[in-house]
């Protein structure tokens, strides 16, 4: 009973914060999206006009399409790059080498988004060091993808590294001892046992990508429009109800995709190492 009360006391600040900030913002968004005129009133009469025009607009769906495509591309690419990287960090013998690798993986987070993004712009522009190699990437979707993969790599590396570390080393050795070559050891033993890490990495990266604003705005050159940008634009135009409706769409998309990931994680849950 006392332990229960102590636990309640410990989660109280976090819960209070989330309820106040997160829940009230969601409530406000829902309330704003259900009106056509911006009013100062917290509660107004329900009016589905905004929803009708937002959902009936082909532009909304093309923006949703771009957002989802960006989310899927970036999470797949990030996980593909993060997995071998995490494996390398895991197998590096010396502590300082692993620390150096982790620092490199972490470095994009340490740099301001504006600096990082303009850095990419300088690299990719005509006449830039990577210009000839990635011709036409800047101010198009591939440029946005490459920059997002860069900054979101650590969010995939960490869950994957943690799940690789949770696989006992003797399982790989046992597989080798039973005659499995490197490829078979990876596909039949390591990969199935690290699927939970891959899924949670992809989940994080996806959620971050579909809500990313600065990178698509600065590197998309106005050609890559995602939901976060249209929300921003509508707020600039004082179209609060439209912005709110789009924010709700973004939230629903995130929840939908995250629950798909959750379901997938549950299905492969049998592969989790329980020792």
């Amino acid at each position: 009973m006392r332990a229960r009360r102590a636990a309640a006391a410990l989660i109280a600040p976090g819960t209070a914060y989330l309820v106040l900030v997160f829940a009230s913002i969601i409530a406000l968004l829902l309330s704003y999206s259900a009106r056509t005129e911006q009013t100062a009133a917290l509660v107004a009469t329900l009016d589905w006009g905004t929803w009708r025009s937002v959902l009936g607009d082909g532009y909304t769906w093309s923006v949703v399409g771009t957002t989802l495509r960006l989310g899927v591309t970036v999470s797949v690419l990030t996980v593909l790059i993060a997995y071998p990287l995490a494996w390398c960090i895991h197998t590096v013998r010396r502590g300082w080498q692993a620390a150096a690798l982790l620092f490199v993986v972490f470095s994009p987070i340490l740099v301001s988004v504006v600096v990082r993004t303009y850095g990419w712009a300088m690299l990719l522009r005509d006449g830039g060091p990577l210009g000839p190699l990635f011709e036409g990437w800047l101010y198009h979707e591939p440029g946005v993808v490459i920059a997002l993969v860069h900054v979101e790599l650590p969010f995939a590396v960490f869950p994957i590294l943690a799940s690789i570390r949770s696989v006992p080393a003797d399982l790989g050795e046992a597989a080798a001892d039973l005659g499995a070559g490197p490829l078979r050891r990876f596909t039949r033993v390591l990969l199935p046992l690290t699927v939970p890490g891959v899924l949670s990495g992809a989940q994080l990266v996806f959620a971050l990508t579909i809500s990313a604003f600065a990178t698509p705005a600065l590197l998309g050159g106005g050609r890559v429009t995602v939901l976060a940008q249209t929300i921003y634009q509508n707020i600039q135009l004082l179209q609060w109800p439209t912005a709110a409706a789009q924010a709700v769409i973004l939230l629903v998309l995130a929840l939908l995709v995250l629950s798909v990931f959750g379901l997938a994680a549950r299905l492969v849950g049998g592969g989790r190492v329980t020792r």
Binding site: P168, L171, A174, L193, T274
Partner: peptide
């Protein structure tokens, strides 16, 4: 035969 058994848990 490993000390832990090293059976594949999946």
């Amino acid at each position: 035969v490993f000390q832990s058994g090293a059976l594949f848990p999946h």
